[in-house]
Design a protein around this nucleic acid. Structure first.
Lengths: 228, 228
DNA sequence: ACGACGTTTCGATGCCAATCGAACTGTTCA
DNA sequence: TGAACAGTTCGATTGGCATCGAAACGTCGT
């Protein structure tokens, strides 16, 4: 009850289109300079500076001085999770007009979601792994099977099992574009890491969307049996 | 990228203190009338009506006419999850002044979080079940052990196992007051349901906080070995 | 030391939206 | 049919804040 004011305060930070653009661009965990963010936000550097100061003051962002420029990044994965939650609701409510820009299409096709894969690619991989018996996943939770752990490890994924002899956890992350869960958590991060290392996917210069290489397409189809 | 405007729009709905109060009060899934919500929001009925219209228009709330009055509730669990994410960040960032009201204390002690238990009680039960080997849970995911399923079922919990012979999933929900995960998902809902049915806890008239009965205290300590 | 560049601060402007009083609609009960 | 009550609509006021121009700041090159 009493947190409601603080709740409103945090929401207010995201409620500005410019700031929403900034936060959305930083969702993959990268560090961007104030100038780059100004261009992304679509406002002047002065205005951007004001926005960034608010976001840092409320500890949604962390800034580090690198020479004459300042690099900003999300303060924690919790912020990314919060944004993902907002996006899910934003995508679910009011489909409205879809301008369907090229960037939009790229984002829907394949993108990173903080540290894991999302979009059609992310959902297709999760579906395929489920069908192959590597994974059990629904909106409430997920679990790797023994076979699934062997499968990913065999491909070169680094599934760190923490001190306790527990299984490496995976969690679902509701995909705002596909409206179905994709694979997140430690396993999701390991899978994305593997895909980048094997050059199956590459980051596009701007934004969070990624490009699937020829080798990637072949690997996703042959190894994962994904329908993409 | 292109969802940023919609992201801002949804955040804007939560960014008003009155609306944040309303949404927070509805987080347990109950249905409240416009009048009750006006009192909770702390504004006049006219203003509340305007707020509610916006929330319904954006499909965050659902309204049903019940005689001369209208009952409002969250449109989906996704909205509750979104709010929980915002609260987590709100509580983590800027501890600030803690007015420490009585309601605040009650909320911290024990409350419902949509369909499961949160606060000191929720976290204590999750901790205890973990220590007793009933449960494995961390920030990324959770899993019931076979013993844990037997334990809860023996107490009378209704753990619905879906069609596939999968285990009933549980998921962690980061507690904004305790800053540690408590038990959510199907198992969390079943546990809360059990506690209400056994009269271990009772809803307080206003708000989402719950009161632990004497029988509840005894049950939580003897059956669960919880430290509360 | 100076100039260039990236970034921030200051100050003024303009817009959006939260708010409430008053009046209106609709439902229930006598 | 009319009274009582819940809720909404309308209109006017208000305050907060996003925005940008201009200027200052700090850091790095030469």
């Amino acid at each position: 009850m009493t947190i409601a004011p603080q709740l409103a305060e945090v929401a207010h930070l995201v409620a500005d289109p410019g700031r929403a653009n900034i936060l959305s661009a930083l969702m993959d965990g990268r560090r961007l300079s104030a100038g780059e963010l100004a261009e992304i936000a679509g406002v002047t550097p002065q205005t951007t500076s004001s926005h960034l100061a608010k976001l840092v003051g409320r500890e949604l962002l962390i800034v580090e001085k690198r020479g004459p420029r300042r690099l900003y990044r999300l303060a924690s994965p919790l912020v990314a999770q919060m944004l993902e939650g907002l996006m899910t609701v934003a995508a679910a409510a009011a489909p409205r007009f879809r301008p369907a820009s090229r960037i939009d299409a790229e984002m829907r096709h394949a993108r990173t979601c903080y540290d894991h894969l999302a979009g059609e690619l992310g959902v297709a991989l999760a579906d395929a792994m489920r069908e192959q018996g590597h994974l059990v996943l629904d909106a409430d939770g997920g679990e790797m099977t023994a076979g699934g752990i062997g499968f990913l490890t065999g491909l070169g994924a680094d599934l760190i099992v923490p001190a306790g002899s527990r299984r490496p956890f995976c969690r679902p992350c509701l995909d705002w574009s596909e409206r179905r869960p994709h694979l997140a958590g430690r396993v999701g991060a390991a899978l994305a890491d593997l895909a980048f290392r094997q050059d199956w996917i590459r980051r596009r210069p701007r934004g969070r969307s990624v490009e699937i290489t020829e080798a990637g397409l072949a690997a996703f189809r042959s190894h994962f049996r994904a329908r993409i």
